[in-house]
Write a protein that binds this DNA or RNA. Sequence first.
DNA 1: GTAGACTGACCGACGGTCGGTCGGTGGGTT
DNA 2: AACCCACCGACCGACCGTCGGTCAGTCTAC
Lengths: 250, 250
Amino acid sequence: MARVTKEPDVRRDELLDVALRLSLDVGFESMSVDQLTREVGVAKGTFYHYFSSKSALMFALVRRFGDSLFNHLAARAQQPDSPGEHASATERLRDFIAASSAWKLEHFDDAVGSMSVLYEPENLALRHSLFSHWLERTRPLVLPIVVQGAQDGTFDVADPEATTEVLLSLWYDTGDRVWQRAVAISADPEAFVRQTLAGVLAVTRAMERVLGTPDGTFTPSLDDDLQAAVQTLYEHTSPKLKPSQKERRA
Amino acid sequence: MARVTKEPDVRRDELLDVALRLSLDVGFESMSVDQLTREVGVAKGTFYHYFSSKSALMFALVRRFGDSLFNHLAARAQQPDSPGEHASATERLRDFIAASSAWKLEHFDDAVGSMSVLYEPENLALRHSLFSHWLERTRPLVLPIVVQGAQDGTFDVADPEATTEVLLSLWYDTGDRVWQRAVAISADPEAFVRQTLAGVLAVTRAMERVLGTPDGTFTPSLDDDLQAAVQTLYEHTSPKLKPSQKERRA
DNA sequence: GTAGACTGACCGACGGTCGGTCGGTGGGTT
DNA sequence: AACCCACCGACCGACCGTCGGTCAGTCTAC
C-alpha cells in the first residue's frame, strides 16, 4: 500500500473520527481493528502505533466526546456573567442545569442525536465509560453548589457529599432508565414524548425533594421548545430499527 | 476421554456451578468456554448442547443467581403474616425493605459476600445484566405499594410510575455508586464502613423525601448488626481491589 | 433400535506483535 | 547554495495465539 505520512495529531484524529463513525454505525465491539485501519487507509500496525489497545481507543473516544460538554460548562462557571459565588445556591444550580440543557440543544446533531445507538447492548462498555467520565466531571461542578446551599440553609441537606452522589445518580442513571423505557415504547411517538417528559419532571421533582427545596424550584417550563426537542429526539431514535447492513467485503 | 452421561438437569447445573465459580474467580469474560468445559470434564460441544452461546450462559447465570432473592420476596408478599393490602403503604414498604435486608444477611456467604468481584471492569456486562434482572423483578413488587400510598395520601407522589422508577434507581444505581466509592477508599477499613453507612443513610433519606414522608420514616437503626454486616462486607471485598498492606495509610 | 447426550478436531475472526521499510529532516561537507 | 546522508519515527503487513462457535459422528441408556 502507498505509504502516506501525516502529522501524528492529524493521523490520530483520523483514527478517532473513523472509529467514532464506525462505533455509531456497527457498534464499538463489532468494529474490528482491521476494519478501522482499512477504512482509514493505514496498516494495522499504525493503529497500535497510536493506541496501546482497542480499549485505549475507547477511552480516547470517550474523552474527546465527553469533554466537549464539560469544557463548556467549566468555562462558563468561571465567566463573570454567570452566577458566581455570591449568587444563591438555587440560582447557581438553575444556571448549571440551564447551561447544560442549552449545550445539548445546541450540539444536538453531532452529539445528543446519536445517543440512542449507545443503548444497544453492543455498546454497553462504551456507554458506561462515557457516563463514568461525565459523572467524574460533573461532580466537582455540583458539589460546591450543594455545599453552599447546605451551609447557607438554601438547601435542607445533611450530607452534601452523599447528596451530590444522589443528584448525579438521578441525572445520569434515572435519566438513563427513563430513556430506555421511552425507547421501549418507541412504536408510539406520542407515548414516547409523553413518557420522556414525565420522566424529566419526575427526576426534577425528586431533585427538588432531595435538596429540600419547594416543588417547582427547578421544574422546567414545558414549553414548545422542550416538546420539539423531545420530538426531534424521537425522530433520531426510530432508524435504530433499521435492518443491519453489516456484511461487507472481507 | 471417558464418556459419562448424566441427567440433563444435573449436567446443566454442573456447568452453571462451575461457570459461577470461574466467573467470580477470573471474571466472566476471561473465562473461556474451553476452560469451563475442561473443569467440568466435558467436551466443548457439550457446552453448546446446553447453551446456545456464551451470553446465553450469562443470562442463565443471572436468572439462577438473581431469582433466589425474588422468589423469596414475592412469596413473602403473599404470606398471611406479612403486611397485606390492608396495611399502610409505609408499613408495606418497610416490610419489603426489611425482608430484602434479612435475605441478604441470611445468604451473605453464597451471594452478597461475593458481590465485590462483580465490580471489576471485567464483569461489567454480567453486573449490568444481573441488575437489570433484579430491577425488572423489583418493579412489580414496589409499584403497587407506591400506587397505594399515592391514592390514600400516605405518600405525596404525583406520578407513581415515574416515582417508582426513581426509587429503583436510588436503590440500585445510587447504591451501586456508593459502593464503588466505598471500595475506592477500601485502604482504610474504618472509612469504608463510615462511607458505606453514610451512603445507606443518604439513599434512605432521599427515598423518604421523594415519597414525601417525614425524615426517618424508613431510616434503619444504625445498630451493631448493621455495622457488623458492613464490616463483614469489607472483609469480603475482593483482595484484588484491596491495596497491599505496604501501601496502607501511614 | 433409536433418541439424544456427548465428543473433539476444526474453523474463521479477532486483538495484538514485531522485524523491517521508507519518507522527511537537519547538520555537515563541498 | 547545493548536495549528501545519517537518523528518527511514522508506517507496514505477515504472523501469532486464543477465542467463540460448528458439526459429523460416536456412544449409551432405555
